[in-house]
Design a protein around this nucleic acid. Sequence first.
DNA 1: GCGAAAAAATTGGACAGACCAATTTGTCAG
DNA 2: CTGACAAATTGGTCTGTCCAATTTTTTCGC
Lengths: 248, 248
Amino acid sequence: MTEKRLYQTVARSILDMIESGSYPPGTRLPGERELAERFDVSRVVVREAEISLEALGRVEIKVGSGVYVRDPVAMTGLALPRVTPFELTQTRLLFESECAALAATMITDEQIAGLEATIERMKTAPHDTDDGEAADRDFHLQIAQATDNEANVFFLKTLWRMRTEIDPVKRVYSAVCHADTSHRVNEHSEVLEALRARDPGAARIAMRGHFSRLLEALLDASERQAIEDARRRSIENRERFLKSAIGA
Amino acid sequence: MTEKRLYQTVARSILDMIESGSYPPGTRLPGERELAERFDVSRVVVREAEISLEALGRVEIKVGSGVYVRDPVAMTGLALPRVTPFELTQTRLLFESECAALAATMITDEQIAGLEATIERMKTAPHDTDDGEAADRDFHLQIAQATDNEANVFFLKTLWRMRTEIDPVKRVYSAVCHADTSHRVNEHSEVLEALRARDPGAARIAMRGHFSRLLEALLDASERQAIEDARRRSIENRERFLKSAIGA
DNA sequence: GCGAAAAAATTGGACAGACCAATTTGTCAG
DNA sequence: CTGACAAATTGGTCTGTCCAATTTTTTCGC
């Protein structure tokens, strides 16, 4: 049960400190020197522990400033595949439409109320701000949560991480979403109506429609030069992947 | 473009060495001292780099022996959520059925031939052996690959990691799969037929049927005591999750 | 020759102490 | 109150040394 290497036990201890709530996201952890003394290890070991936590995305190390607790939006280690905006949206269409259909069969009144509030937030908040994006995310996340399936929630969060953490995807998505705002709100409302009616088929169709329109906007935008670059890179990535998959 | 901290550039360099193919999975990397000299940094930095790679699951450090390249089955950092067998199967049903439908619209003859070979492998290999399991995995993976979407492939691999790396899931799945073998082969054949006919609807239905039967077997098995425990634990996990989600 | 036990070499793990660079904080002149 | 400068804090890195686990080589009995 006990870890072999010292840095792992220290990392575990630091993680406990974080998860106990003593250090909420954004706060600074004690300095390396202090932690080294507290755990009775050398500074090197403390830093190794912090580096491993940084690799896992749990903390952020700022030189000359300190080590800060990160908000674990979806706590997977990093290393997402380099998907294209098109691929991501297609997968979201597949997955989230089925989630919506499933959610329609088991969503509670409280959860529907939550979705209403989120849509309201979306109407007020400017489209391309952080708050507007967060409302968008919450809408989709709440539907996944309504399926009462942690695997679905996990994948939804991972999909969102792809949208926000993969650079070419991030760029294209923000460019596209900047345009249509009222559209999105209307489409979300359609989904909500289907959920309120507990109609799986309608929910599926509404969600598919939502992403179909996004896909269209994406394809339009992809005619621009910058996006063409990303697409080209995706092709060689795919070839590389297929080649390595054959070997495996 | 260049990383700020030294250990990150070194980690990047080591990763390049690995991905260039010079060090296939399982092989040993050069020793810390040699790498330190080669990159002209101290041993401390090399170890920090290797620790970060270890946290990301790319290498395995064995004390007194060396640093070994790990097989990146699905290269995410670790930290999968604790899903139950039921949740996993439900998500697979949702996701893989849609993948099959999409694959039916764009699968190539070569890929169909590959699927045939995989089913053949499944018939010969004993059900519960590693080889039989690998064939099962390959069947589902090849369908995801036929969608020509890296995000789909990534999620398929992640689903499979959940099946093999999450302990309660692993136990239950192996117990269930031990029983029906010819069933599975038949069901896979049905899916293949639909793909060969390029019929998305039939592919979707065949795959849903495949997982529906798995789901049934799972529910039967869940009446046993050990699985009841896992289910109980899943409920408190879910509650904990919901509570934390409200706070976020 | 062969095989097991012992010795030597290799490798990662950890420590101490020192110095550097980035950042933050405190202070003081204007 | 503000801006510039100095000091303190904090993470980053190096050198060198020693330890423990592991692997390789040697040795020696049979």
